[in-house]
Each structure stands twice: as structure tokens, then as C-alpha cells.
Amino acid sequence: MKFLSGLSVAAVAVEAHYTFPRLVVNGKQVEDRDWQVTRQTKNAQSKSGIENPSSGDIRCYSSSTAPQVATVPAGATVNYISTQQINHPGPTQYYLARVPAGSSAKTWDGSGNVWWKFASTMPYQDANKQLVWPAQNTYATHPAVIPAATPNGEYLLRVEQIALHMASQPNKAQFYLSCSQINITNGGNGNPGPTVALPGAYKSNDPGIQVNIYNIQPESYRAPGPALWQG
């Protein structure tokens, strides 16, 4: 039996992790290089996920804000390019938080009871009766549509993919996420909600975070966070 060297193990671990440095709108990348409208995350080099959902990093995991703001029409389809293959099983979710009047998407930190969820993926069973999620084992997150009724204005757009391969153990789910600075146009008069704070919306023992995905049926999985608002 062959054993991996310490260096090989490290390499495999890095390859199993990922970041989401580029936003895609209606099938087109809006960033010609990494971290232009998407805030650079603290794991830009390590690619490691967050394991403590009560950490302040669960909001945006950002080490800095981004220099630009992308214009995104309401009703647009959004997703993210991944630096590595998204090979860990688990849901992909999307949130928005509207920038308060007098603040800018380039500087606002997203604090407070301001985040609402508009998309979340559900699993299905493969031929081996394993749970898999849409866009798993691809190099881009599963797309979502910004609700057409979303009011105009500047927002932080947040994507997260929750890796559940070790989530039967406490604090072993891994959160991979990014936040982008966007300006929504052609919007509506909706009243998005319910809103939550990040951190605050998740607990480490939530059934969608601490879960044995190898012993449940697809329809029984419940992703963490608030109910969806779809306009």
C-alpha cells in the first residue's frame, strides 16, 4: 500500500478547497481578473473554508473591499467562477444586503439585520445512492436569479457553498463564500425578507450544518438560514 508524503497530502488538501473570485452576470464575467468587484477573501491563498458559523468571517470572509461596483439588472442570472473544482457535497446559497443610504458598496461592512436569502440548492441521489448537489464537481457555482422585484440600489451580493462531507461531526461543515459589490438597476418595489444578521443566522448544530448526508433522503435536507424571498 502506498502512503502519500506530507507534501502530497498538503497538495491534495489545497486542491480540495476553493474560492470564488469572479462574478458572472447573465453568463458573462464582469471581472477581467480576480477580486475586482468581489472582495478578496482571507483564504485567497490557502483556499480553506470556515468551520465556525458564529465567526465574523461568516459574513464575507473578506480581507479587503474591492475597487469596483458591478451594475446588475434585477432579474439577472448570477454565479461565480471557482478557482478549483467544487467537489465537496453541499448546498449553494445566495444572499443580498442593501447598502444603507449615505453609505457605499465599496466600504460598507454588511453589519446588522440586513441579509436576505433568494436562492438555495437541494440535493438528489446519484446511481450510488449518494447525495449530490447541482453544479457539484464543476468550476462554477450553481446559478441563481436575482428577483425582478428587488428594489434599485447598491448591495452586497453573497454566495456560499457549504461543504458537508465531514458535517456529521460538530464544527466540521466548511463554508466557502464571497461577497461582491453590485448596483441593482431596473428593479421593482418588493420588500425583501425575512432579514437576518451574519453572524447570527447560523448555529453550529443547525440541522443543515451538522448533518450526516450519508444517511438521509434528499427531500429531508434543510439548508440553514432564513426562508427564501423570491419577489
Rank of each mutant, 00 (worst) to 15 (best):
L7V: 12
S8D: 09
S8T: 08
V9Q: 10
A10G: 14
A10K: 12
A10T: 13
A11V: 12
A11Y: 13
V12F: 05
V14M: 13
E15D: 13
E15R: 11
A16S: 12
H17S: 15
T19S: 08
T19R: 04
F20S: 03
F20M: 15
R22P: 00
R22I: 14
R22A: 08
R22L: 12
V24E: 06
V25A: 07
V25C: 07
V25S: 06
N26V: 02
N26S: 10
G27H: 12
G27Q: 09
K28P: 01
K28F: 12
Q29T: 10
V30L: 11
V30S: 07
D32W: 11
D32A: 11
R33T: 15
R33G: 14
D34S: 10
W35R: 02
T38W: 00
T38Q: 07
R39P: 00
R39D: 11
T41G: 12
N43S: 15
N43D: 15
A44R: 05
Q45K: 13
Q45T: 14
S46L: 06
K47Y: 14
K47F: 13
I50C: 04
E51T: 11
N52D: 15
N52V: 05
S54T: 13
G56F: 09
G56M: 05
D57P: 00
D57A: 13
I58Q: 07
R59V: 04
C60V: 04
Y61P: 00
Y61L: 06
S62I: 00
S62Y: 09
S62K: 11
S64C: 11
S64G: 12
T65N: 14
V72S: 02
P73V: 05
G75T: 01
A76F: 02
T77R: 10
N79V: 03
Y80T: 08
Y80F: 15
S82N: 05
S82H: 05
Q84F: 06
Q85A: 10
I86F: 03
I86R: 09
N87F: 09
P89I: 03
P89H: 06
P89W: 00
G90C: 05
P91G: 03
P91I: 01
T92N: 03
Q93N: 12
Q93F: 03
Q93T: 07
A97I: 01
A97G: 09
R98Q: 13
R98L: 06
R98T: 01
V99W: 01
P100I: 05
P100H: 12
A101P: 04
A101F: 08
G102I: 04
S104W: 05
A105Y: 01
K106T: 14
K106G: 10
T107Q: 09
W108Y: 10
W108M: 08
G110L: 05
S111T: 15
N113Y: 03
N113K: 12
N113G: 02
V114Q: 06
K117E: 07
K117T: 03
K117N: 06
F118D: 01
F118Y: 10
